[in-house]
């Protein structure tokens, strides 16, 4: 049987750079991200937090050397690592939380859209109900919210600001359509 070859979430790898030229809003799809979801066993939430060295705040991401931990709900996190080999990443995290938590491989099930640019705040306000104003959110801010009726995990990664928007892979093209259509007015 032939090996499975991963396809680009948008079908066209050129689409991202084309949409970002001369725009008030720029896009990127960070390559080689590994994602695993971590669930704490009952009563083990604090132990998982300690073991992974992450924050217990439900609205702030923690940056570690090999991953960012994005809180999803009590006792659940999405760990995103810059690691091409997602199985290796999963195994490393599973080893860390062995006995106190579970991991679930998510690398192929999510797509990360990195959104930035001088008009990104205005752009986000077109579809995101959260207040992302300068005085309200800062680097590390993390939330789950529907944007364009699609469930998004949002992570502000710097003060520019730049937002990482994680959606289910199955929604990637529909979400990309909304991103580019909405960005057209911010050229």
């Amino acid at each position: 049987m032939a090996d499975f070859v991963p396809i680009h979430p948008l079908g066209d790898p050129e689409a991202v750079s084309k949409a970002s030229s001369n725009a008030g809003v720029t896009f990127d799809i960070p390559p080689d991200l590994s994602m695993v979801q971590v669930f704490a066993r009952k009563g083990q939430e604090d132990n998982v937090i300690r073991k992974l060295g992450i924050s217990d705040s439900p609205r702030t991401a923690s940056s570690q050397k090999s991953f960012n931990a994005l809180p999803l709900s009590p006792g659940q996190w999405m760990l995103v690592g810059n690691e091409k080999d997602s199985s290796k990443f999963e195994a490393a995290i599973a080893k860390k939380v062995a006995g106190i938590g579970y991991v679930s491989q998510q690398s192929a099930s999510r797509v990360c859209f990195r959104v930035s640019g001088p008009k990104v705040r205005d752009f986000m306000s077109r579809g995101c109900r959260l207040d992302l104003g300068e005085s309200v959110t800062s680097k590390g801010y993390c939330a789950q919210t529907p944007i364009a009726q699609i469930g998004v995990l949002l992570h502000q990664i710097d003060e520019a600001p730049t937002y990482d928007l994680y959606v289910y892979s199955g929604f990637a093209r529909a979400f990309w359509h909304w991103l580019t259509e909405t960005a057209a007015q911010f050229r």
Partner: peptide, 11 residues
């Protein structure tokens, strides 16, 4: 209690 103030549309 976890996410802060959100719109009814999310609930």
């Amino acid at each position: 209690p976890w996410c802060g103030i959100r719109d009814e549309a999310e609930f």
